[in-house]
């Protein structure tokens, strides 16, 4: 896939929780139009990094720029513009339980556009169809399966046609088939709509299917241990931890 200029630039980023440093001086870039995967074992700070990248938490040090705009400090009009640029799918889906699936997708459109109500419903319905949820408009989120909830959450994140989609563990808790369907959806969205994806994952199978580029985080260094295409990392990485991760072997200092 053609990669353009940097869409997101993370520079010297440090995250701390209760004074304990979790991620130490990370720097990387996400290019426009690529599917970028943040990889790593449990508890290495993947989701924390994602939540900083979308401006929910303020970094202890360093800056995160999205399209040249600082996600942490943006205020007022600038912040509203920034928020329009990206959508987020949370790990649990985070659909609003008191609204139907369609209303969930309508919400951002109602709040941020002047479109008439019937246009909003049509657009929302189209987005739901695009993620394979046609006919589920009037269901409540609780009536959907885990995979369907995640699709609906992607539809809601895409409601305002963002340039970047952040997905937090899209395949967590899904069976291999549903997970593969979700991978197909991600790839086809990236191709057809030219959306930049930033995905947090530890699912090996899906990484090979979707990722243009991955960074790998590790607890021991509190930072990035490897960057590159997933196939390159698997075949050529010198780092023992990376090799183990791809070979699905237990770590030597913690035998199972």
């Amino acid at each position: 896939m053609a990669t353009g200029a940097a869409m997101i630039r993370v520079d010297g980023f440090t995250a701390a929780y209760n004074g304990r440093v979790i991620l130490d001086r990370l720097s990387f870039e996400v290019y426009r139009g690529e599917v970028f995967v943040i990889l790593g074992g449990s508890g290495c700070g993947k989701s924390t990094l994602l939540k900083h990248m979308i401006g929910l938490y303020a970094p202890a040090e360093g800056t995160i720029l999205m399209d040249g705009c600082n996600v942490t400090t943006a205020q007022g009009q600038e912040r509203q513009q920034l928020l329009r640029k990206f959508g987020v799918m949370y790990q649990s889906g985070a659909l609003f339980g008191s609204m139907t699936v369609l209303d969930n997708v309508c919400l951002p459109l109602q709040e941020f556009t002047n479109l008439p109500p019937d246009a909003i419903r049509l657009i929302a319905s189209m987005k739901l169809q695009r993620v394979g949820l046609g006919g589920c408009d009037d269901h409540m989120p609780a009536e959907l399966s885990g995979g369907m909830q995640k699709r609906a959450a992607i539809a809601r994140a895409m409601a305002l046609d963002p340039e970047v989609l952040f997905l937090d563990e899209p395949s967590a808790g899904l069976d291999p088939i549903t997970s593969a369907e979700l991978d197909d959806l991600i790839v086809s969205l990236a191709r057809s709509l030219k959306i930049t994806f930033v995905i947090v994952s530890h699912e090996l199978a899906s990484i090979f299917a979707i990722a243009d580029r991955v960074i790998m985080l590790d607890k021991s260094v509190k930072g990035i241990v490897a960057t590159g295409k997933p196939q390159e990392l698997r075949d050529r990485s010198e780092n023992p931890w990376v090799r183990q991760f791809f070979a699905r072997q237990p770590s030597p200092d913690n035998p199972a």
Binding site: I54, L56, Y90, Q91, A94, G97, L107, E111
Partner: peptide
């Protein structure tokens, strides 16, 4: 409950 289910985060990142 909305906070626990990340719905509050979702609102914030939607600009609401």
């Amino acid at each position: 409950t909305m906070k626990v289910r990340e719905e509050i985060d979702a609102l914030k990142t939607m600009g609401l």
